[in-house]
Write a protein that binds this DNA or RNA. Structure first.
Lengths: 303, 303
DNA sequence: AAGTTCCATTAGTTTTTCTAATGCAGATGA
DNA sequence: TCATCTGCATTAGAAAAACTAATGGAACTT
């Protein structure tokens, strides 16, 4: 296939120059200098071996050949514009797949997603709960929620909530005969653990709580299970503020203490850097960020 | 007009990569490395914010969006190809205007131009005789014949004939009673001058001819008039080999001496450098050069 | 398990494109 | 009619884009 195409960037200059019949105006439009346009046109003319413009005294005219070529090129640019527009429109709607840990899905995204769907009926959201791994941003997943420090290579990450850890338990437990007045009273209670006992261990150490055996109490594989156990009065969990929030607001869980340990990790909404700012992904990111902001403002007002 | 066009050169890479479904093959086609294609595609995808390819294990696939875009882009490139082809075809035929001195037109081009027209019926030749000036390669003149040293700024020049000057006169004069056996006999004859008397002056000096008064004899404004005067037996002209040739061949003029002074100047076919190698101008140049070559070969054989 | 095949990435080079400063020629205008 | 302006061309050098060579990784093949 003999594809001797003209230098494409020169065509851009040619189209503008022919439209304005002025190199200077074309240059303004393209945000370059008049000299740049002059160079480009010259290189196009010399590639084609055909004069496209007649440089008259003070006006610029198209040659016959130039006129004909301009009409063609104009259409071609317009087609390209259309095609690109269609592509972008297509990228702006359709399905978006979100991968995230089940607990975050249940406690945060699912209760809110209907609002997104109402605002953006074009975008069909698919929620894919995955056991946490940080490798889920694959071909069929557009965005994911990761828990971590916010630095992933080649990925764009929006921090969602500033999280803290605080003990939570059923209100029944709080009213029971075992005291829960001060931190040291934790020694009388069962601790409920999430995946490992590290979280409680850090918390206890940080607030210098005495007499607590952190190695006791059941370990659950998922945060949701811990919350469930706590709600059922089986012990005291160390609640993530974000995940526990709905249960606390519903009154099924309470925070017996005011001590809050701000975590170094947080939930992040991540996507490929290159896709962060366009189409449906940008739309989704924007919506999520707005949600989070509104909630954190509410928190401030609550306190 | 919001023209956010994608980077045009990336589109070239995209089209090839999508057609081959392989960056490596696209790179081969475009005579670049695979890395270059990879970069271009990446920049296009990041401009659009949309993944165009799925990089699978060992195969490359277009995404849905990429597929749609490819079909559009393919057509666009093909339109561009067509438009450019049409333009070049148009540049290859149509009218060609030649500006040249009247004498050269009459003695050389006009007698031969019918051959060109026969070989290239698409090209309509227009001959514009102009009094010599070297400024005639303007907008409506495609090629010109200049007399000079062959160096004109920004112009392409093909040397036509190696010229020499030698006295010429009517055969009648040669047979008359005034002798014309050796150079010094020139003193007995009228010299016919072309525009100025410099030419004869140089010739006389170069061959060390004695006793000739160069300041005598009529001066004519055009070479043609000198030839005409010589043919009518009014004196001895200093003939340009190229211009006098037809008259000599026809027997209306003869060269009484063998002394020939090769000129520093010559006739050149000139055109704009940028247009020299394409379209009808290239065709015309090629034809003229062929003519000249054939004639000079004939000359060699004649001698 | 070693060898392939393809694409991605990195750093550095080459090429292209652009700019700033002038030049030039033909209007325009006092 | 002389100075000024407007618009394109040209030049040399700066900036940006494109490309290369080398290397790495992942998933096939043998």
């Amino acid at each position: 296939m003999s594809r001797r195409l003209p230098p494409l960037n020169s065509l851009k200059a040619f189209e503008a120059a022919a439209r304005h019949l002025s190199f200077t105006k074309a240059a303004d439009e393209l945000f370059v200098t008049q000299a740049a346009v002059s160079h480009q046109i010259k290189s196009l003319e010399s590639f084609l071996g055909i004069k496209l413009f007649l440089r008259k005294n003070r006006t610029l005219l198209l040659t016959e050949e130039g006129q004909g070529y301009y009409l063609d090129i104009k259409d071609i640019f317009s087609s390209l514009q259309d095609a690109t527009q269609r592509l972008l429109a297509r990228g702006a709607k359709g399905a978006i797949t979100v991968a995230l840990p089940p607990s975050f899905a249940i406690q945060w995204l699912v209760p809110r997603i209907h609002k997104f769907s109402a605002e953006h009926p074009d975008i069909d959201v698919r929620i894919k709960a995955v056991d946490f791994d940080e490798g889920h941003l694959t071909d069929d997943v557009d965005v994911a929620v990761y828990y971590g420090k916010g630095r992933w290579n080649g990925l764009h990450a929006d921090k969602l909530h500033t999280e803290y850890l605080t003990p939570i338990c059923s209100p029944m437990l709080f009213q029971s005969d075992k005291p829960l007045e001060e931190l040291d009273d934790l020694r009388h209670h069962t601790l409920l653990h999430d995946a490992s006992r590290e979280a409680w261990k850090n918390w206890i150490r940080h607030f210098n709580v005495l007499g607590v055996n952190v190695n006791q109490g059941p370990v659950f594989s998922h945060s949701m299970l811990v919350l469930q156990a706590a709600a059922l009065g089986q012990g005291i969990a160390l609640g993530h503020s974000v995940l526990a929030r709905p249960e606390i607001q519903a009154g099924r869980l309470i925070c017996p203490f005011d001590e809050k340990l701000i975590t170094r990790n947080a939930y992040y909404l991540v996507c490929h850097e290159s896709q962060a700012d366009s189409g449906k992904i940008a739309t989704f990111r924007q919506w999520v960020n707005t949600q989070v902001q509104e909630e954190q403002q509410d928190d401030v007002i609550d306190e």
